[in-house]
Design a protein around this nucleic acid. Structure first.
Lengths: 343, 343
DNA sequence: GTGCGCCCCGCAAACGTTTGCGAAGGATGG
DNA sequence: CCATCCTTCGCAAACGTTTGCGGGGCGCAC
């Protein structure tokens, strides 16, 4: 049996389809007599009427869907963000399409096209790169866009994330408090706001503590991954300079660091302390449990959705950027520096 | 400037919109002259024409979308499956809606309704529970459905997963080879096919090895989570019976076991060996690295998508169920049993 | 009693496709 | 040379909504 259509409920309620439409939509319900509205509602209920989203979207030109672009949902950092987005948007009747870009420009462009083809009402992206303009262009072309985690400064875009520099400050202060003076940094890629801002935060914080890190003692990883972390940590430890602690660009890089420490027969935190960034799921299970800077992933997702909804309701809404305060969570990977022992 | 419509390209190509439609669709292109087809294609190209999905779906009654239901995308086991699904479906022009059910019947029903409201062409679900009929009902009502990971035996449904019993066989054989004779099982919930089949596999394998596990030595966890694992492991170790190894219902339960071992000042694998199930991401990073039964998550996703596509092309296709072979990956959490030491 | 305004609702167009039907025209066979 | 068929394309309906427009009816004021 074919699903009930608007005409069916109109027929059953003894009204014109147009009237039925008005009665069914909360926004226009006031235009129809209370009695008949009730009749229509009952008819709809009785027939199990569900509006056809295509007909509706065709007419109203919006789809009640939004796209979510992330590098890779297989990276445990992102799913909580996506859930935050989904949960919030579902409350307002939206559903999301998620696309993985693998940090590849072509895939990102392809996914963006997919989203446009699907006529999403808006987009939330965690894939922004500083000198890549595809997202900014889309926003400039009128696509409601909000950035999460990574930002694109100066573009007048909506965004929500954490104060990266502040987070790194927490990390180095913690290490300094423990007595460390030889602190290194394995930064994320400079082409990402997160990589760059955490790096800047690092040098600021070190200077603030009266420490002047030698250039050899900060290296940049090619990506926010374990493999890149391994490579970068290897490079870092190739230097002859003393290192008792390192703050990593994010948790995955830190985990890569774990592997390199094992390679070098160094133990953590006895020989060198490591602190990560993000507090993604499971870094408390790893050995030693990772000291890291927590970013409230789920909440960021929810807030991003909030802002997007606001923007959708009012297209003239001025760009908002939310910078949440990170929080240090200390676990087992940090401790006092060794007393001038190895290396 | 409003996006180009079919009428626009027809106008530019000097043909009727109907003809343009036929020319643009590969399936009907043969119905129009090769020359004019080319003209239409060029016009479409020039105008940057993109078909309106709503108009198309309204007419053709399919949406080129499919729903994916999982318990929780925050659980690292599922994202690779979802990516497998997405990657495969994207190749055929489909995009997916994902819904999280949190293993809650009401949420599942709600998500199912959302999917139907969105008019998905099909559904892939990882949320099947043995005595819950909502998915089976939907399938019986004509919704193309394929199950992943968990099955619903006897319902004539499409499904793809791993041979759970065989996986557990590998696990206990490995332990027996190491010399273990006192092997326990912390099973998953019996209301899930995975929980039940792995449990059955356990008793079979034990019998096959000539061992008769005491009833005290198998306990059921309430869920496939760490917390439930902790509770179940505590209960397990409350017995006075000797236990030198335990096979856990899945990796998360195994991780819960890690915590309980620490509580009891037992070390793994010196005092007790643990083997997990799934080989989800990061269980190689945990300490000790978890010996576990690998299930090819990404591949399962792709295959599920394959089967669904087949079903969509041919509605009369007979139900297929794919049982992949699991594989044991041994890491650091298993070793020979202690020589009659503690407990 | 007339006129005005307001509340409700019907009418029909429109959103952008797809597709069955039929016609025009050319080719082909007898 | 006529009948027939095939190819190619135009025509228009249809998919299920939303929404501007207008009209009918009623109440109220004068």
């Amino acid at each position: 049996m074919a699903p009930a259509t608007l005409k069916d409920v109109a027929l059953r309620a003894g009204v014109h389809p147009g009237t039925a439409s008005r009665a069914l939509n909360p926004g226009t319900r006031a235009l129809v007599n209370e009695q008949t509205a009730r009749r229509v509602l009952e008819a709809a209920q009785a027939l199990g009427y569900r509006p056809n989203p295509f007909a509706r979207s065709l007419k109203t030109r919006n789809s009640y869907t939004v796209g979510v672009l992330i590098p890779d949902m297989t990276n445990p950092f992102f799913p909580p963000i996506v859930r935050g987005i989904e949960d919030r948007l579902a409350e307002s009747g939206y559903t999301v399409f998620v696309g993985n870009t693998d940090n590849d420009p072509e895939r990102e462009a392809a996914q963006l096209l997919r989203m446009r083809d699907r006529q999403v009402d808006g987009l939330i992206a965690a894939t922004a790169e500083l000198e890549r303009h595809t997202l900014a262009d889309a926003a400039a072309a009128g696509l409601p866009l909000v950035l999460v985690n990574r930002t694109l400064p100066g573009k007048g875009l909506f965004s929500v994330g954490v104060d990266d520099a502040a987070g790194v400050h927490l990390a180095v202060e913690h290490l300094v408090d423990l007595g460390h003076r030889h602190i290194a940094h394995v930064a994320g890629p400079e082409r990402l706001s997160t990589g760059r801002n955490r790096y800047k935060g690092f040098v600021e914080a070190m200077e603030g503590a009266g420490l002047r890190p030698h250039p050899d003692v900060v290296v940049f990883a090619d990506a926010f991954t374990e493999e890149a972390g391994v490579a970068a940590f290897r490079k870092l430890f190739a230097t002859r300079r003393r290192i008792t602690a390192v703050v990593a660009g994010n948790d995955l890089i830190a985990l890569g660091g774990y592997d390199v420490l094992i390679e070098r027969k160094l133990s953590c935190p006895q020989d060198v302390s490591i602190v990560g960034f993000n507090d993604m799921r499971f870094v408390d299970k790893v050995r030693p449990p990772l000291t890291t800077v927590r970013v409230p992933q789920y909440e960021i997702g929810r807030l991003a959705a909030d802002i997007l909804l606001e923007r959708l309701r009012n297209p003239a809404a001025p760009p908002r950027t939310l910078r949440l305060a990170p929080e240090l969570v200390v676990r087992g990977s940090t401790g006092p520096p060794p007393r001038r022992a190895t290396r």
